[in-house]
Amino acid sequence: MKTAIVGAGAMGQLFGARLQLAGTDVVFLDTNQATIDVLNARGVTLQTESRTEHTPARAARASELDETFDLFIIFTKGFHTQAAVASIAHLIGAESCGLTLQNGLGNAERLQEYFGPSKTLLGVTDFPADLSAPGMVSSNSRGKVRLGALGNVPRLPNIAQLLDSADLHAAVEQDIRIPVWEKVAFNAALNTLSAVTGLTVGGIGADPHARGLVASVLEETLAVAGRLQIDVSRQRIEAALDNAFAHHTHHKTSMLMDREAGRPTEIDTIGGAVVRLGQDNGVSTPVLATLCELVRTAARPGDNR
């Protein structure tokens, strides 16, 4: 299955390398010429707790190509989704499928505009991915991928099998909205709060006031999901938060790192998306709404907020 990885950051390089090592024809699509040049020259080296693997890589800007792909996997930040998918429109064939494994809400709906409901998939993953340098990715072998669709996608089992055969531990979910919203609840609490306070995950876990805010954001997010009849599990989310507080004490969330670097944040596709859906469905989210406004206020001049 000829596959394009759209967004060759840490997660894109991890998934692209895994697929290519398993025999899939992969092309990395990105807009950063330095990343493209390094991938073409050096390939991707993947380090896990048990081994180091290397694969050559082919990378390009989408505008430089004139070919179609069977599968596109989107790994850009949520605020880039619309532009990213528009940039690959000329590469989408009649049978091409699009898969988003991005954080946040609304990405699958953007993909549906180009791929259609019967060829759009979404999912979540808990694989970590860190770049020590372009083309040098560290991860582990314990993560998994959970896949599904908002409509009927006949090729969903085949794509799950493709990812699973690449040691990405993929499985199909009957209602993919549940894991998506459980991850959104987790990120809405930790990302927004860390971006506002500058605290690491461990710092949030150690502060009773911060823990109280986490509990409030979780309560509000669960209320919105409940109004949308999405049967999320409070217990699973709380267990994930407790695990993060215990084992990721020095971790900075991506939103905090983006804010510190003066980059745009995903506030509008994570916490902000929950707030908007709450407003549309008559559910009040005062704590999360305030945290989102504080993130936007703290963004540096020139940020795309």
Rank of each mutant, 00 (worst) to 15 (best):
T24L: 00
G135M: 10
Q102L: 13
D25C: 01
G16K: 03
Q33E: 10
T68P: 01
P134D: 07
F115V: 02
R305T: 12
D70L: 05
Q33V: 04
A246S: 15
A206R: 13
V38K: 11
I74P: 00
L162G: 03
E293K: 11
G16A: 02
M11W: 13
R58T: 09
L111Y: 02
Q174Y: 01
G12R: 09
V224G: 03
A86S: 14
D167R: 15
L156Q: 04
A166G: 06
A94N: 12
L150H: 02
L39G: 06
E293D: 12
T55W: 05
D258Q: 11
T3R: 06
D25I: 00
I267A: 08
L111E: 00
A60E: 05
P264L: 09
M255P: 06
R300T: 15
R300H: 15
N40L: 04
R146V: 11
A60Y: 04
V38E: 11
S139G: 06
E113W: 01
T3H: 01
S216M: 13
Y114S: 13
V145L: 13
T68F: 04
E182D: 09
F69W: 13
T100A: 07
R51I: 08
V184S: 04
G198K: 11
L122C: 14
V184D: 02
A4I: 06
G212E: 14
V153K: 01
A170G: 08
L14M: 12
E182H: 05
V153C: 10
A299Y: 01
P157H: 06
V295I: 08
R211A: 12
A188W: 01
E95S: 15
V137P: 10
V44K: 07
V6Y: 03
H169A: 14
L131C: 11
G148K: 05
Q174M: 03
E95T: 14
L213A: 14
P117L: 02
A84Y: 09
A244N: 09
T81S: 09
F79V: 08
S139F: 08
A108M: 05
L46C: 10
T52W: 02
A62N: 08
R263M: 10
A149P: 00
I204V: 15
N103D: 15
H90L: 03
R227Q: 13
L21I: 12
L168E: 07
G278H: 09
T269V: 15
A57F: 01
A4S: 07
T125K: 10
V180Q: 10
L291Q: 05
V27W: 03
N152P: 00
L277C: 00
A94Y: 04
D167H: 15
K2D: 12
K252S: 12
E219F: 05
A185R: 00
G16N: 01
D167E: 15
L21R: 09
R51C: 11
V275A: 07
E182W: 05
L294H: 01
A240S: 14
T35Q: 12
G106A: 11
